[in-house]
């Protein structure tokens, strides 16, 4: 069994490494066909032709393309993406400084998605075709179809008119400016350093962006959980449990939910791609100053080195999230890891 699980994981890792490789190739090709010389972008219009030529040489832009790609890939594996064409600072450092802000936002979003989406889905299945179920259907439909920027703006507008104390921009109040903790995740840092006022303030700032980001996912997870619960309820072994007189509560949470968790988890893995995309939007609306905001800025300024790094790191985010989800699913459901390892 252990060997089967190992093989299952190895296959997954290999598959995801392939994904990242193709992604790297695509973004590299894309960056190299761009009209406009990266060295010229870095130095600005006033630089002389010799200066540009010198920088081209330093950046290896005159090498054959396959060699450039190998260099790029080697650097990416070591975490070296070259220097930003705009600020001149190493891209990896800039991204590393901004990553915690995004990571914190995404983690809180995931917690909200799961803690709301799954129980609501269970309830919707339990009270199927009731008024409650109908309301939840509408909520999930709104979540899926409403643009996340509109939802974010509505939250801000609501706060501006009715909840004037609530923070709607940034990660911390001005009173705590300059606070730095060991992890960069402000809520965690606040708790670790015993500054619970900071942790609470950071949580208040997190609430709106995270809710705006979670909306579409909550809807999806709710819908999938509901249909999975309904489907599994009809299965023989569940019927057997019920006929033995096992209480409905135990059947639901101990047996049904475990089975039904697989579908929403899988969806969450796929949803993660759009979650990263929406993070760009939500971070912009709430001036979050994270990795996604920086990526957007880099894209608008044609800072190619940063763009390449942002795309690859986003892909990495997606891949790691799916890997984690695969492990969890494999642990929940042995049938899957046995089937996959064959």
């Amino acid at each position: 069994m252990a060997a089967g699980f190992l093989e299952f994981m190895l296959r997954r890792v290999a598959g995801f490494a392939g994904v990242l490789l193709v992604l790297a190739l695509m973004i590299f090709v894309l960056a190299r066909v761009v009209p406009g010389d990266p060295a010229r972008i870095a130095l600005g219009p006033t630089a002389s032709a010799e200066q540009v030529e010198q920088l081209r040489d330093e950046m290896g832009l005159d090498d054959p393309l396959p060699m450039q790609f190998v260099d790029f890939l080697g650097g990416a594996i070591r975490g070296d993406f070259g220097n930003s064409l705009i600020s001149g600072q190493p891209v990896a450092q800039e991204i590393a400084a901004l990553l915690p802000a995004t990571l914190e936002l995404v983690l809180v979003t995931l917690v909200i998605m799961l803690t709301l989406g799954v129980p609501l889905g269970v309830l919707a299945a339990r009270y199927r075709n009731s008024a409650f179920d109908a309301v939840l259907r509408i909520v999930s439909l709104v979540g899926v179809t409403m643009p996340s920027f509109l939802f974010a703006i509505l939250l801000q507008l609501g706060a501006a008119y009715w909840l004037t104390d609530w923070p709607i921009l940034g990660r911390l109040s001005r009173d705590f400016a300059g606070f730095e903790g060991p992890t960069g995740l402000l809520v965690l840092d606040g708790v670790l350093t015993g500054r619970f006022d900071i942790a609470a303030d950071a949580l208040r700032h997190l609430a709106f962006p995270a809710i705006a980001l979670a909306m579409s996912g909550i809807g999806q997870i709710m819908r999938i959980t509901r249909s999975a619960m309904i489907e599994h309820r009809r299965r023989d072994h569940v019927q057997t449990l019920r006929s033995f007189g096992v209480p409905a509560r135990v059947v639901t949470f101990r047996y049904l939910l475990k089975l039904s968790a697989i579908a929403p988890l899988t969806i969450m893995g796929l949803e993660f791609a759009s979650l990263i995309g929406n993070a760009f939007v939500v971070e912009m609306v709430f001036s979050w100053g994270g990795f996604a905001s920086a990526g957007l800025e880099a894209i608008l300024q044609k800072d190619l080195n940063t763009v390449m790094a942002v795309v690859l790191v986003s892909g990495g985010f997606f891949v790691v999230a799916n890997l984690v989800i695969d492990v969890v699913i494999g642990l929940i459901d042995p049938r899957i890891r046995i089937k996959e390892s064959r």
């Binding site: 995801f16 994904v19 992604l23 695509m26 973004i27 894309l30 791609a273 759009s274 990263i276 995309g277 929406n278 760009f280 990526g295 957007l296 894209i299 763009v307 942002v310 795309v311 986003s314 892909g315 985010f317 997606f318 891949v319 799916n322």
Partner: peptide
């Protein structure tokens, strides 16, 4: 597996 919005932005 490619985040669509990120890629479309690029």
């Amino acid at each position: 597996a490619i985040p669509p919005l990120v890629m479309a932005l690029a």
